[in-house]
Each structure stands twice: as C-alpha cells, then as structure tokens.
Design a protein around this nucleic acid. Sequence first.
DNA 1: GACGTGACGGTTGAA
DNA 2: CGTTCAACCGTCACG
Length: 340
Amino acid sequence: MRPIRPAFGEVNQLGGVFVNGRPLPNAIRLRIVELAQLGIRPCDISRQLRVSHGCVSKILARYNETGSILPGAIGGSKPRVTTPTVVKHIRTYKQRDPGIFAWEIRDRLLADGVCDKFNLPSVSSISRILRNKIGNLSQQSQYESGKQAPHPPPQPSLPYNHLYSYPTSKVPTPPGMPTLPGHMAMHRIWPSSHSVTDILGIRSITEQQISDSPSFSSAKLEEWSAINRTNFPPASSPLVNGMDKLHLEPEAKYTQTPNGLPTVNSYVTAPSIPPYHPPTQVSPYMGYSATTSAYVTGPTWQPASGSALSPHSCDIATPLAFKSMTANRDAIHPVTASAL
DNA sequence: GACGTGACGGTTGAA
DNA sequence: CGTTCAACCGTCACG
C-alpha cells in the first residue's frame, strides 16, 4: 500500500488544512471555480475556502486556460520516445544504409509513419540509439536482417507508436501544439469534464455517474482511471492535456469528496442537503479525508448546521440544481472512496 | 489590499 | 524491490 499519510495535513495561514504535495480536493477546486464564476473575487474565495490566494489564482488560471479544474498528472515519467519499435526501425534503416545520418533516420521515421512529430526522437536520441543499442550493428544486423524483413514492418509498429503518440499527460502540450483553449479543452473526451458550465448548469457525466448511479464506484472509477495517465488512451492524444487532467486521482484517493464537496453546504442552507457527516468508511486516505473535512468544515464552515456559515454564505446563490447535485455526490462518494 | 509569480518542501509514479 | 527523476502539488513571501 501507500505510506501512511499524515493523519492531519497541515494548516495554512488562513486556517485551511492541506496536504503538502497533494492537490486540493476536487470539490474545493470546483468550489473555487464556481465562486469565481459567481463573481466572487479571488481574494474572497481564498479567504472563504481558506486556500492560499496563490492557489486560487493558479486554479483559476488553469481553468481559464484548459477548462479543467483538475490538477495535472502527478508523478510518473514521460513515455519514452525510443520505443522498441522505433529502435527496431532505426536498426533497420541503419542496416539498409550503414552510412545513414541520424537526421535522415529521423526523417524516415516520420515519413514512414513510425513516429509522428510528437514522438519523434531527437537526432541526439537517435544517435544514442545507434551508439548504444545498435552499436554492433554490423554483426548483429546481418543476423537480424536475415530473419527480419528487409523493409521496415509496415504496421506492427503502429499500435505501439500509437500508444505513444502523445505520450502522456506528461506531454500535455507537445511542441507545436499550443495549449488548448479552455472551451476546447472542455469538450474533449470527457465533455462534461469539470467545466463550471457543466457543473453548474448541465448535469455532466460526472454528475450523472455519481448521482444517477447509486452503485457508482469501482466501475466508473476504473473507467475514469483508464483515462488517467496510467492507462492513457492514445486516441485522445491530441487533447491529452485536458483529458489527462480529468483523472480523478485526488478525489478518489483522498476520499475527499465526501468531505470536500460539502462546500455547497456552507453556502447554501439547503434543507435537502444531508447533514454533513464524516465518512464512516475509512479509506486508505482517511487521514486526508479527515483533514479535508476539517478543511472544508472548518470553523466557519458548518455544513451540517446550515446556519453557521461563512459570512458570505448568504450572499451566494448557488443554483439549486447544483445544490442537489452536490448533495447527491456527497452522499455517494463515500462509496466511491470505499471502493478504492 | 489584490494578485501574479517563483522558491520551497513535499508527493507521486514510471523507468 | 528500492532508487532515481521529473512531473505535479499548495503554501508562502515578495513585488
């Protein structure tokens, strides 16, 4: 499993609880964007949610840029460009033309469709490959060329390369590919994504998944995780960035949602909203959950009561639809969490 | 006072 | 299986 994480994150200057190195719960992120959309100033959002203004600024900026409220993919490595297939092709080229230059190989990789411009190895990479992996080409090549087609296998490479076309989230904005405009980013693989528009107005897939499906949990999560960096869907590559950010890792892992979502409660005295209660099901990340709840339900955040709200609570008219949606999520996410 | 930004200490996950 | 490395995180402080 994972190392036991700090049972109680840390407390920032505003009194908010956070876990160093980890993203804020999606609920909070969502809340930040929501409030911003409602015209609340970032500084007020910061104070209200007890999130540093730098963070608020960052999240809003990201949202404006990508249309996603989700954090970027954390960890992992860039997928290698010099995949076995690529190496194989390079070898083949070299075999066929021992005097070929690295840049020529590069061109050929591109021309032959072995690579696209985004996963095309650099000349230096090719040189390295030639040096390290195909160094003994002369001998090896003869041997291999014997059993391998003289010409580069047309397709076998495709699936593989395809997979790496836009490697991962780690390469959100490949050279030549400008960061996606927010609106575009929002309508990618997961249309609903986390756009506030969707979240506030339209029932996004997410919401549906969560609120419509009582059993929403592992299945959907898997589905989501499949979108995550780990199992990156190659097909979505061009829009990878935004999509990638849809990974729900933080939410899922932290079980933050049950607690994190709550936010709504603080703003809305919605009778329909179930009283906030700490999840009884403990996930591996319970620690964080707890903190999150503290975080969210901090002193001025008394969701359950619905009355002891932050000063702004009454000023904000959160759409009812959203309220209920959130309430639903609130109720359901513990399951999600436990499923993990 | 509001806000953008970079340093910092931290986590994560593929290699 | 532990380490490395490069990505990301949020906070904080500065301007």
